[in-house]
Amino acid sequence: MAILEVKNLKKSFDDTEVIRDISFTMDEGETLTIIGSSGSGKTTLLRCLNFLERPDSGVIRVKDEVLFDSDITGTVSEKDIRNRRLHFGLVFQSFNLFPQYTALENVTLAPLLLAKENTGIDLPAIEENARGLLDDMGLSDRMGNYPHELSGGQQQRVAIARALALHPDILCFDEPTSALDPELTGEVLRVIKDLAGHNMTMIIVTHEMSFAHDVSDKILFMDKGVIAEEGTPEEVIDNPQNDRTIQFLANYKNGM
C-alpha cells in the first residue's frame, strides 16, 4: 500500500514554474532519492510536502488521508496544518539547530511543547526517547553540548534525532551533506543508511550519487520541474534512458 501519493503537483514563484506537474507514489519503508541539477525543483518539492510552500494545485495524500487538495477550498486552521505537517519530518541542508539549547534540549523541545497540549503523555519518556535517539546517532557523550561546540556532522546528526523524535511517517532530507566538509559527509550518510536498514520511510534530495545508488529503493531524476526519469538505482543511474539523465550523470562523472 502506498504511504504517500502525490498527484499533479504544481508550484510557481511569480512567473517561474518551479514544479510543473509531478506525480509519484512511495511505499512504507521505502527510501526514495531525488536527484537532478540545481533549479530543477527538488527542494521546492520537499518544501511543499512539509507545508513550507503552498502548492498551486495538486493533491498530497499520506496513508489515505488527504493532506492537501487544491480542489477543496476553505481555510484550514493553524492547528490542522500543524497536525498534517507532523506526518513529515525535514532535515535541512544548514541543520538549523536552535543555538541556545543543548543537543538534548534541541531534541526534546518540540515533543515537550506538544505534550503540554495533550494530557496523558509521559514527560520522562520524552527525554528517555531523546537520549536513545542521540545514542543511536553516536552522540551519547555530546548531549549536553551547545550546537556551536559541535562539528557540522555532529550538528546534522542532532538535527536528524530532532526530526525523528516526533515519529514522522516520512522523513525528508534536503541535501543533508551539502554544507559539510567531505570528511564529515560519511558519518551523516552512515546514519541515514542505518535508518534505511531499519525501514524508515525516507525521501532524500542529494548530490551524492554513489550514496543514492547504495541506499535507494527508487530514484527520481528531476529536470525543469518534471520527473524526467524514475526507477531503481540500477535503471536510473546504471542504465539511464532519458537524454537529460544521461547528460546529467555524465557531467557528474566528469566532475569527479
Binding site: N50, F51, N83, R85, L86, N96, F98, P99, Q100, L113
Partner: peptide
C-alpha cells in the same frame, strides 16, 4: 535566519512558540 522559523514550523511549533521559545532569546543576545 529564516531557517530558525522553518525548523520550528516543521517541528509542529505554533508561531507563538517559535517567537518565544526559539527566536526571542537570540534577538535579545
Amino acid at each position: 535566519p529564516v531557517g530558525q522559523y522553518e525548523a520550528g514550523q516543521v517541528l509542529g511549533m505554533t508561531k507563538h512558540q517559535i517567537f518565544f521559545k526559539v527566536v526571542l532569546l537570540q534577538v535579545i543576545k
